[in-house]
Computed example of a mutant assay.
Amino acid sequence: MGTGKLIVLTGPSGVGKGTLLRSLMERHPELCLSISATTRSPRVGEVEGKDYYFLSRSAFERMIANGEFLEWAEFAGNLYGTPRAAVEEKIRQGQWVIVEIELEGARLVRQAFPDALRIFILPPSLVELEYRIRSRGTETEEAIARRLNRAETEINAASEFDIQIVNDDFEKALDRVDTALFAPALC
Rank of each mutant, 00 (worst) to 15 (best):
R62V: 14
L108A: 07
L70V: 06
I91G: 05
A76R: 15
S125A: 00
P83W: 09
R118M: 13
N149M: 05
P42W: 00
N167T: 14
R146A: 10
N149L: 13
N167Y: 07
E88I: 10
W72Q: 08
I91Q: 05
D51V: 00
L129Y: 04
G49L: 03
G105V: 02
V109W: 02
S159R: 07
G81I: 08
L148I: 10
A86Y: 03
N66D: 11
M63Y: 12
F69P: 04
P114R: 09
V97M: 05
A158I: 14
L79P: 06
A112E: 10
P42H: 06
F161H: 12
E152V: 11
E102S: 10
S41R: 06
F161I: 13
P83V: 00
W96Q: 03
L103S: 10
G67D: 05
P83D: 04
I163M: 00
A59H: 12
F60Y: 11
V166F: 02
P123M: 04
F161S: 06
E48A: 10
I98F: 07
I155Y: 10
F120D: 01
V99I: 14
R107I: 02
T138G: 14
A85M: 11
G67M: 06
L108T: 00
E100V: 03
P83G: 00
R147P: 14
R107Y: 00
S36E: 14
E61A: 08
E139C: 01
I64W: 04
A112N: 09
I155G: 14
R62E: 15
R132F: 05
A145E: 10
V127M: 15
E88P: 08
A86K: 06
A73T: 09
L117H: 02
E128N: 11
S125K: 04
E68C: 01
V127K: 15
R118P: 04
F75I: 10
A106I: 10
F75H: 11
V99E: 05
R110E: 11
E68N: 07
F120I: 01
G77K: 12
L148W: 06
A143I: 15
I165E: 02
T153K: 07
R136Q: 01
F120G: 01
G105F: 03
A59R: 15
F75S: 09
A158W: 07
E74W: 07
E130D: 09
F69L: 04
A85Q: 13
E89K: 13
E48D: 13
I98R: 01
G94A: 12
V47T: 13
L103C: 11
A106V: 02
R146G: 07
E46P: 08
D115W: 08
E61C: 03
A151P: 03
P124Y: 10
V44A: 09
A158Y: 12
I144N: 05
M63L: 12
E141K: 04
R150K: 09
E104P: 05
E130A: 09
T39K: 06
F161T: 10
E128T: 12
E152S: 13
L103H: 08
E88K: 12
F75K: 11
E142W: 07
E160Y: 14
F113I: 03
E142D: 12
S135K: 13
A37I: 02
S58L: 14
E48P: 08
G45M: 02
F54V: 06
L148V: 08
